[in-house]
Design a protein around this nucleic acid. Structure first.
Lengths: 267, 267
DNA sequence: ACCTGAACACCGTTCAAGT
DNA sequence: ACCTGAACACCGTTCAAGT
């Protein structure tokens, strides 16, 4: 049924992606400027580096999907044989871990995300949530990795799965007067809210435009037994992800507020 | 870092799994009893079937993880060459789709899940939620597939991603007096709540027992800059997944109640 | 110091051939 | 009708060898 679609993507991947190449070159030039500061051979081949490989991997996943990412194809993309990559990454698995880490850290360079509350904890959490959402939406193919890679510890919950972000989160709430248990409870609620929404949003983006999508305009026989689905099709097809996100975020903030004040009473 | 762990699992998979074999045999005998009804050759080799393959695939993923599942190894598990599988499944991708479908339909055989409300919609949704949770927890390695396989349509949201379950959901709420938009909004809220919680719970189960897990008992130098994480470690390490789930479910039901009554006022 | 050729053990998948 | 042998094009990964 859906096999044909799936079988396709693992095969040929013509690597015509000028923008990718440019981005890499740019990134490396930046790095050199900082480190070597002025004596790089002018027209020499840009050398490989871990960062360059990871960036290329993210770009490749964004363009061709995760299953399309192959050490050999990634090598070709970088103008190099696959074996060369192993100087910088231990294995494909290691590369995928690095991709997740880089994605999560991308928020640090997001100007709208602040690292400690300036206008109250609600604003703080709102910026954090929107920052993660921006990442998810700009890397819809790669984002699911953030959820599916095994975490380093059970309490390092996706999508805020780095020590640094957990620290930022807890420190922020602490500074805003949250008690210890309340901060942790808020962290838990926040992560599961974010993960559910963003994964769903991202999965909707990648949904097959299959036979079920024609469902609205006619009485498709395959929908025969599903009267309610058919009747509600117009509503189901509407995309409310943005407002849904805002509403759920509001609700979450209310819950967090409850958590906060409840703790004040009891402990 | 975590590369060694990841690299390991793709290699050797000694197939000593008597329980698996037994389950398959049993399943097939059942099927034969219904279809052929009495004239199967007594000690003949159980023939392959799509169901048997899918069941075996689920069992294999549960035991060895998703990346360990290989057409060739699955064949061996079933006492057959890999090529034989292609009589029943179009491709590995097709098999994974079938695994997801089977998992989702497993709820149908769950006695505690009812297919239309008997004691109000809250009870109905509660049973549904717990049913999905039971599946997730009993197949922690396979469950993420439910979220990551591309959906057939954007509005078929994981983890309730079958026409039948969406119909059941909508019909149930409709019967309980929900308006059209309210039922759809409830479906959206319900799925994202479920997905977030279950994915997080399942991912915690599979978390590496790595160096970060020792974090509590000593002042690990790697935690130096993370004062709050270190201080809150005792709280972070506590596992509250069950109560967390119940609380979030309660909250969701409250929200759904709001959605329901709001619609009554406006439309 | 950085990259590659050649090789190994594995993959998914096809198809003509066996029983 | 059902399964397999042989083959193909692809993988990840290692390591000795090239520059």
């Amino acid at each position: 049924m859906s096999a044909a679609a799936g079988g396709e993507d693992g095969q040929h991947a013509p690597s015509r992606s000028p923008s990718l190449r440019e981005r890499n070159r740019e990134a490396v030039v930046d790095a050199d400027a900082v480190v070597v500061d002025g004596d790089e051979p002018p027209s020499a081949r840009v050398p490989l580096s871990r960062e360059r490989i990871i960036e290329a991997a993210i770009a490749y996943i964004d363009e061709h999907g995760l299953p399309g990412l192959t050490m050999r194809r990634l090598g070709t993309t970088l103008g190099v044989e696959a074996m060369s990559l192993y100087r910088y990454v231990a294995a494909r698995e290691d590369l995928l871990d690095a991709v997740v880490e880089t994605l999560v850290d991308e928020m640090e360079r997001d100007a709208d995300v602040i690292t400690s509350p300036e206008h109250g904890w609600q604003d703080f959490l709102q910026r954090l949530a929107h920052g993660v959402r921006r990442i998810a939406l700009s890397h819809p193919q790669a984002f699911p990795l953030v959820a599916s890679r095994p975490a380093e510890a059970p309490w390092l919950r996706p999508p805020l799965r780095s020590l640094r972000w957990v620290e930022t989160f807890l420190a922020g709430l602490h500074a805003e007067g949250f008690g210890d248990e309340a901060a942790v409870a808020a962290y838990r609620a926040f992560t599961s809210f974010l993960l559910g929404h963003l994964l769903l949003e991202v999965s909707a983006l990648g949904a097959d435009v299959g036979p079920l999508d024609i469902l609205s305009d006619s009485d498709d026989k395959s929908l025969e037994p599903y009267a309610h689905v058919r009747r509600l099709a117009p509503f189901l097809k509407e995309d409310h992800s943005a407002v849904e996100f805002e509403e759920a975020l509001e609700n979450l903030l209310d819950r967090v507020d409850l958590i906060r004040t409840e703790e004040h009473r009891s402990s």
